[in-house]
């Protein structure tokens, strides 16, 4: 089978407003793909078209091998969906709500009950399963929404802002759950988010959306290379007492390492900020720093890679795009 999600020149217009602009997107089987973009970028609109919940103005989509505009039922049978502002029937319990979804998916009675217990366990809601969803917090509703999307045992999971109302520890749990679904079940996952830093650890690839257009797609590292400054960043901290007399030494020994382009000291924390160029030499440089520290008797207290922040990437990408569109306008 080909890619579980693929779009060709997919477009959605609301009157004059182009919400999604000639989108070509491909999500590969068994990957976690992040759709990133600011409010109003067109993430939700794209997702609705992928599910056949909104008719495209142009272009086509193919999800699990079917065109969602023509065969929405086939798509919906194999795709689990968490809407962005998910809601449940407040007077029913979490379990009852999930049971209804199970029935709508044509599952057998005992199959449903087993499935409900399993998915509630997965999202960590077992203890509240039998209270009405009126009494749930926003984050609990979101967890129940993920459970709801999993009831049908989907091949593809589409999650619109799955982590927005979930607490930091909860986010880690949810992302772990997504990883295990991908690993154990081979599920393909598409998630949207505007909290770039929050989901970058889980995404195999990300697509950056701005004003309905995909302005960048690839792994975080690839995007960092393309839109970032082309360097990897490493933070090195030595024990405090060495700072005064060891400082010049530390700077010299860090700068001497091959592929290190700049070395700067952070005035507040007195740790060293090392940039590595090209970006893929980051591992070799880290090894070299450890070796140098041992050889020169520097007491290393911490060494960590500063992940290229997608926020930064996003900012440069958007800036680049607006410059590009300005130039085309001038050209035209």
């Amino acid at each position: 089978m080909g890619a579980p999600i693929r779009t060709r020149a997919l477009t959605k217009r609301y009157g004059d407003l182009v919400a999604v602009d000639v989108l070509d997107l491909e999500v590969r089987s068994g990957e976690i793909f992040g759709l990133l973009g600011q409010n109003g970028a067109g993430k939700t609109t794209t997702i609705l078209m992928l599910l056949g919940l909104t008719e495209p103005s142009g272009g086509t989509a193919r999800v699990v091998g079917f065109d969602p505009a023509r065969r929405p039922l086939q798509v919906k049978r194999h795709v689990g969906y968490l809407p962005d502002a998910v809601g449940f029937y407040g007077d029913l319990t979490g379990r009852d709500n999930l049971r209804y979804t199970g029935r709508l998916n044509g599952l057998a009675r005992d199959e449903i009950e087993a499935k409900i217990d399993h998915v509630l366990e997965q999202v960590g809601l077992s203890s509240r399963a039998d209270t009405p969803t009126d009494t749930y917090s926003r984050g609990m509703l979101q967890r129940l929404g993920i459970a709801d999307a999993l009831i049908k045992d989907p091949d593809v999971l589409i999650l619109d802002e799955p982590t927005t109302s979930i607490d930091p520890i909860g986010v880690v749990e949810i992302l772990d759950l997504l990883r295990s679904l991908r690993r154990d079940r081979g599920m393909t996952i598409l998630l949207s988010s505007h909290l770039l830093g929050q989901v970058q650890s889980v995404c195999d690839r990300v697509g950056i959306f701005a004003a309905g257009r995909l302005i960048g797609i690839g792994t975080v590292a690839e995007l960092a290379e393309r839109f970032g400054d082309g360097a990897a960043h490493i933070e090195v901290t030595f024990a405090r007492d060495q700072d005064t007399e060891g400082a010049p030494d530390a700077r010299a020994s860090l700068a001497a390492i091959e592929h290190v382009s700049t070395v700067e000291q952070d005035a507040a924390t007195s740790s060293w900020h090392v940039s590595v160029r090209p970006i893929d030499q980051s591992g070799a440089v880290r090894e070299a720093i450890l070796r140098a520290a041992v050889e020169q008797g520097l007491r290393l207290t911490s060494l960590r890679v500063l992940e290229p922040s997608l926020d930064d990437i996003y900012r440069t990408a958007v800036a680049g795009m607006s410059v590009a569109s300005v130039t085309t306008e001038v050209g035209a």
Partner: peptide, 14 residues
């Protein structure tokens, strides 16, 4: 208003 409509319509029913 309850936000259940997108969920309901994303199930395999017409």
């Amino acid at each position: 208003t309850d936000g259940t409509l997108p969920r309901l319509l994303s199930q395999p029913i017409y």
